[in-house]
Design a protein around this nucleic acid. Structure first.
Lengths: 355, 355
DNA sequence: CAAAGTGTGATTGACGTATATCATTTCTAG
DNA sequence: CTAGAAATGATATACGTCAATCACACTTTG
């Protein structure tokens, strides 16, 4: 009925507690034969180590690190603040989660940061990753030290990480396309696309998904060649104003990347009833405000808080050596002005709006 | 640096460990003065009981119950199956979660079920609730026994429960309206609405939200008087066929309740390019399939798995006497054919499709 | 004044695991 | 065959808490 203990396993395997302990904790110095006996007994009895007791005994505290890009990025600020708000709660579960800033999006910064956190005693690291083989060396070093690595928001090369927590950006792009398409009610139109850069994988994925659906299902919609904005609000604003101004028949705008402040500024100047249909990514103080005031129509949000929570539970499971809890895929949340959260999160965000 | 133990507290308060223990575990027989000293020391040191150690010592297992309506309802099947899939994982945290069937949606069934689970040794109960004061007596009895009660999916009277886990149905209705409105691309139209019954609070809420937005923001859209379907697919089908058939200029359909199979059947017979824009609730095998094949356009999903996870962590926090982890409001997920999950969940659902 | 009750201290054995020490047995090489 | 290494057993302590017990001093009460 009740859960078997390690003593039960040892007894059933016909070895001493000490030997069983040597097996499950990989201390070595145990004969092949004994190892097998213990393993068999474990599966036979369905032994599962009592993690709570183990942690109590070894006074473990889970040391987790989140490597997040530095710089004035509201999205990662949101992650940081959620992490911070969680810290009290995590402490009660013996978890300490530290946010570590990584300079720039370039590979070099991430590489050196990964090297720097070796030998720091971390048990798990969530990394906003890049697809670069240069990361192989520092990550493998960490893994050798028993550190568990997962990708967060943006993936690492698959073979370097144990899991990826983030949305499917292709699907996000497809969804944006679907809703933009639908918004035309069967009429024809022209869509203007803004993106941060072609190098960012998430942007490229979204764009691919967008194209896929528009071309397949909305043949009466034309798509302009995407404009690169470097996620700079000023660039975004200028581009939008230019595109809309020359009355080129733009019926929809899709900003794949950041810099929404520029988009919003530009849209706020137009007649609400006749401006193009606007889709942006990530619910932030500015996008939230813009939705409320009808300057844009749709925000596709990753739900960074949910991602962080998921990352935490996956990391903990990895460290404990058990399988992560079954959970549905992360699906981006679609916000319109009518389902905005009334959260503390939002309240927090309001404080810092207009910056 | 490290967390203070109860011994530290006792020492700092100048009482014995036994007395401190009597205070925190409310065993009585402690002088007022001593109690205060202990309390003060606790806050001074920032003592937090080590729940893991406590549970280990008392061999506690968390006994949780989920009261879900009986009957062939795919939505609650999804909750049940998620709960079932979670059970292994929960067992490792000493949590046992049992789904208990409640007969019918009527108050009587719920009332008797609530009475029946008293004295069963449950620590927490998640209830798919009803707004009825009749529930007061049985719930208060449970609360007296130290059982924690939360509302799930559908709320209980506020004063009877410690928390509510579910979406804001008014917001869901507003969102549906927004997207239906947008789908007309500025053209005029007529919306046909189907609902299960006016008595179901969630349906009423969604309807209210829907009206609110359509009337405010889409004056060129007419809304038919809602048709009651009792969530019966056959009724739904008949109603839809009739509404669409008489070429009454229906441009959109919104099914607030269940019985989507009927809606889908009816739509499948129409020309995909010219059928009305269709919005339904809850991602199920049938709605998922219908999205993929273009029979309907939008599904607003509560994310029952997420709700269950949230319910579990809130219940555990309540039982442990600590505040629930900060988390964003639950926002319904909007599915189109382009962001359908590729989950085990979905695979599971496919098996049982067409029934 | 004895009996009964109250407030407190002191101590102890679980709970299931980790970790360490030391003694013993078994294997392997020379 | 034997020294030394490798494998194993036996045992103890600690982790922080719960739950129980015994002992004592000090009221209250009949």
């Amino acid at each position: 009925m009740k859960n078997p203990t390690l003593s039960d396993v040892a007894q059933s395997a016909g070895v001493s507690y000490a030997t069983a302990d040597r097996v499950i904790n990989k201390r070595g110095n145990v004969a092949e034969k004994s190892t097998r006996k213990v393993r068999d007994a474990m599966v036979a009895l369905g032994y599962v180590r009592n993690v709570a007791a183990a942690n109590l005994s070894r006074k473990r505290i889970y040391r987790l690190a989140f490597l997040l890009p530095n710089g004035p990025n509201a999205f990662y600020d949101r992650i940081r603040s959620h992490l911070h708000g969680l810290s009290d709660h995590l402490a009660k579960d013996q978890i300490s989660a530290t946010a570590i800033g990584v300079d720039a999006f370039a590979v070099g910064g991430l590489k050196s940061c990964l090297s720097a956190i070796a030998d720091q005693g971390f048990d798990g690291v969530a990394v906003v990753g890049l697809q670069s083989t240069e990361l192989e060396a520092p990550i493998e070093r960490l893994v050798e030290q028993g550190v568990h690595i997962i990708g967060l928001v943006s993936d690492l090369p698959k073979h370097l990480r144990s899991a990826y927590i983030g949305i499917d950006n292709v699907a996000a792009g497809r969804t944006a396309a679907r809703l933009v398409g639908v918004s035309h009610g069967g009429q024809s139109g022209r869509i203007h696309i803004l993106a941060g850069s072609t190098e960012a994988h998430d942007h490229a994925d979204r764009l691919a998904g967008f194209y896929e659906v528009i071309h397949r299902d909305f043949p009466n919609l034309a798509v302009n060649v995407p404009v690169m904005t470097c996620d700079d609000p000023n660039v975004v604003k200028a581009e939008v104003e230019q595109a809309v101004d020359k009355s080129s028949g733009i019926t929809a705008l899709y900003n794949i990347g950041a810099g929404n402040a520029g988009l919003i500024d530009a849209m706020a100047q137009l007649d609400q009833a006749h401006r193009p249909f606007c889709v942006a990514h990530e619910l932030m103080p500015d996008t939230c405000h813009a939705l409320q005031h009808g300057h844009i129509d749709l925000v596709i949000d990753q739900g960074p808080d949910v991602e962080v929570n998921r990352a935490l539970s996956v990391l903990k499971a990895l460290i404990d050596g058990r399988s992560p809890p079954p959970a549905p895929d992360l699906v981006p949340t679609i916000y319109v002005r009518d389902n905005l959260p009334t959260d503390p999160t939002l309240a927090m965000m309001k404080d810092t709006s207009h910056d």
